[in-house]
Amino acid sequence: MHEVLRAEIGKGLRVQLAHPVGHVITLLISTMMYLGLQFVLGQGELRQDVLPQTLVAIGGYWFLQYAGLVMVADLIEERRAGTFAQAQMTTAPPWLPMLGRLITSSVFGLAVAGVAAVVPMLVAGITVPLRWAALLPAVLLGINALAFTFLMAALALVSPMVGALQSLFTSLVLLLNGSFLPLALYPDWLAVAARVLPTTLGVEALAQALFEGRSLARLWSGGTLPWLLAHTLALTVVAGLLFVRNHRRALQEAS
């Protein structure tokens, strides 16, 4: 089991690094986009009151966007080429190589999200206080984004057109998860809608822990953490069920 997982992760990393240009371009875009966006929204200036919170959100967006892109694009390409079928003849259960793919994707997602957050911090002098209470929301934010990625991958098993759906959702996440403005500044109805999307609740909990100094107990009693947990769990369960269903469907309908 471990051998298969390690092999899958190693292969994924090597395949991705064999074509580094795409990753480099994404890194460049990710560093420039955020500051450019905030500069325009701030009507020619970078507003220090919103930068830290939106920075957390843009990090969440990039993690979701790039991990998902790597995972789904890779899966579609491999299905088309035939290497996916060859890899299916493993002795391991089908979810294990998918877990390996998810870990590979998360490495690239983390790299881009990290650069997208750290470079603006250095350039614009943004300070993000580090607190232990932020660790759990940060982990849940990551799992939340990966559950969405897994959901898209499950769809990619039966539909090569999943890329369009993925673009739609990631665009909505960029618009609404707090990357433009902190969620607290949204009208109530929009904030509720935004919280349905992946990453939003994670960004909110993380921001509350980091910038308002809330403890985990307060995050829990305030409702942010339970909602984040429930959202992540629901997304994971739906993705898992969809994967089982679509994997079986793919095996029934392959031609």
């Binding site: 051998e3 298969v4 390690r6 092999a7 899958e8 190693g10 292969k11 090597r14 395949v15 064999a18 074509h19 080429a81 035939g82 290497t83 079928a85 060859q86 890899a87 003849m89 493993t90 002795t91 391991a92 190589p97």
Partner: peptide, 24 residues
């Protein structure tokens, strides 16, 4: 009609990957 192996990997890397997928 399929590639069967990864073109962006070397022959050695392909064999190591697919061998380990068989649990070896």
């Amino acid at each position: 009609g399929s590639r069967n192996v990864y073109w962006s990997l070397s022959a050695w890397q392909n064999l190591m990957y697919f061998g380990r997928l068989k649990g070896l």
